[in-house]
Structures are given as structure tokens and as C-alpha cells.
Amino acid sequence: MSKDFEQQLREALRPVDPEEGFELRVMARIARERSRARTKVTRWVSVALAASVVFAAFLGAHQWQLRREQEGLEARKQLIEALRLTGEKLDIAYQAVNREAPEPADDGSGA
């Protein structure tokens, strides 16, 4: 019994030559796995890169919008200040002209 078992074991564990092309198939599979892993990483990097580009573009547009708004508000402020100064100087001139202008003649009605 024990001898039979030993015999079977030896039979089962006897060195067997691999089939022809086994090494090539193993190497090809390793290469395929590596390539698949690389593709997966590349895909994730691409997605991350695209997301970063979209985010950067969004951020840039937002910043540009903010800056534009600040410039617009500043321009509005300057416009109002310019009109205020213009009005102020026109006022001085008109007041002086009014001072110089002769009073309308009194028609003597006493009204």
C-alpha cells in the first residue's frame, strides 16, 4: 500500500518537459499584463490631466470674469468722478457768468 502510494507519488511528481512554446506564451502574457497595467495608469493620468485642464480653464475664466468686473466697477467709479469734476468746474463757470450777467430790468409794477 505504502509502496504503491510512493510509486504513484513519484509518477505524479516526475519531471515533465513543458510543452513547446510554453516559455514564449508565459513571456507574452507577462508583457500583456504589463501593457494592460500601463494602459490603465495612462488612462487615469489622461483623465486627471483633462480634469485639471478643465478646472484650470474654469478657474481662469472665473478669475478673468472677476478681474473684468473689478475693472468695470473701477471704470464706472472713474466715469462718475470725471462727470462730478466736470460738473463742479462747469458750476464755477456758470456761477461766475451769472454773477456777471446784468439783473433783469425791473418793470416797476412792484409785483
Partner: peptide, 12 residues
């Protein structure tokens, strides 16, 4: 408006 002085041209 906006602090622009009111001209008093019409007063006279």
C-alpha cells in the same frame, strides 16, 4: 446726481 452740482442757470 452722484454729487454732480446742480447748476443754477435757470434761477435768474
Amino acid at each position: 446726481q452722484f454729487g454732480i452740482p446742480k447748476l443754477e442757470l435757470e434761477q435768474k
